[in-house]
Each structure stands twice: as C-alpha cells, then as structure tokens.
C-alpha cells in the first residue's frame, strides 16, 4: 500500500511546477508576504524618523564614536535612503535578493555598532529610529536587530530557490 502511494504522481506535475515558477505565476506563501511586510514597514518607519530630524540622526551616529563628524554627516544622509531602498526592493521581483542582502547587511552593521557601544560601556540611544528611542537600552536594541536578522533567513531561502527556477540567478 505504501509502495503504491509513493508511486502515485504528485497532484501538480513537476513540469507544471517549473512552468509556474518560470512564468512567475507560482503562488508565494502567505508567510513570505507577512515577513516582507513586517521587514519593509520597520525599515520605512526607521527611515521616516531619521529623515524627520537629520541632525538628531547625525548626533546619534556620532555618539558611537566610530566615525568622524564629517563621515557621520554623510552616513546620516545616506542611511535612511538605503533603508528605503531595502524596504521597497523587497516588493520588486528582480530586486528581492539584493534587498534582502542590503537589509540584512544593514542589520549586521547595526549589531556591530551596538556591540562596540556595549563593549565600551557607552551610555547612548541607538538612533535606529531617529530620536524616538532616546533612553532605550542598547542591549534591547541588539536583541531586536538579531530577531529581525532571523526573519531574513527564510525569505532569502525561499526567493533564492524560486529565482533559481525562474532563471534569475
């Protein structure tokens, strides 16, 4: 019986699966949309808060004492737009993998900066959400960033697989 079952064809033939994937008509699971929505809304919120007060973003970055004032100034201008690109890219099929890489890269950057602040016992606000997080603990932000990073892994796996089937990769 078990042997018979295992020999039964799958409800959707393999060729059809490939055709669906190639044409991009394959169904994307709901959890992928949910994860992407969560990540892009977080990045867009963070970017909006940084753009609302560029000077506060600048001093937040400078507080880490990792960059000169000039370099912090440039980073304060660039960071929100890179976050916007990472958020919007998640919804453009041809840019998804890049957006995942960019978003995860940003989060690794934040984690490294927060770890260095912790190591040097700096009493600072992380600046992740502009001035809205004044007084927030560096340790809490670190955990939040690591959780967000964990969300990127399954969507990377999903999109890397489907882009391979479509021939994007």
């Amino acid at each position: 019986m078990a042997a018979e079952l295992s020999q039964q064809p799958s409800p959707v033939p393999r060729d059809e699966k490939l055709t669906r994937a190639r044409s991009g008509t394959g169904r994307t699971p709901a959890w992928v949309y949910l994860t992407q929505s969560l990540l892009s809304s977080i990045f867009l919120t963070a970017a909006a808060l940084k753009l609302k007060d560029p000077n506060a973003t600048l001093t937040s970055i400078y507080q880490y004492k990792l960059l000169s004032w000039q370099a912090s100034d440039w980073l304060a201008c660039a960071l929100p737009w890179v976050e916007v690109a990472a958020a919007i890219g998640l919804w453009v099929p041809r840019l998804r993998l890049g957006a995942i890489l960019l978003g995860a890269g940003l989060l690794w950057l934040f984690v490294a900066a927060l770890l260095s602040a912790l190591a040097r016992n700096l009493d600072i606000s992380c600046g992740c959400f502009g001035t809205g997080d004044v007084g927030s603990q560096v340790g809490v932000r670190l955990i939040e960033d690591l959780i967000l990073l964990a969300f990127y892994l399954p969507i990377w796996r999903h999109h890397a697989k489907t882009s391979g089937l479509r021939g994007d990769a």
Binding site: C77, A78, W81, V82, G89, L95, G98, L101
Partner: peptide, 28 residues
Amino acid sequence: GTTGAWKSALLQAAFLLLCAALPTVLTA
C-alpha cells in the same frame, strides 16, 4: 544555483545602493 543567487543578489544590492545615492546627495 546558490552561487548564482549570491551573484545576482550582489548585483541587485549594488543597483539599490546606486538608487539610494541620488536622494542621499540631495539630502546632503
């Protein structure tokens, strides 16, 4: 497939960074 995915991801990320460059310069 994995190498290909990484390659296209790097290219796409570079393109996204280029897209972010213009508003960055304007903001600065």
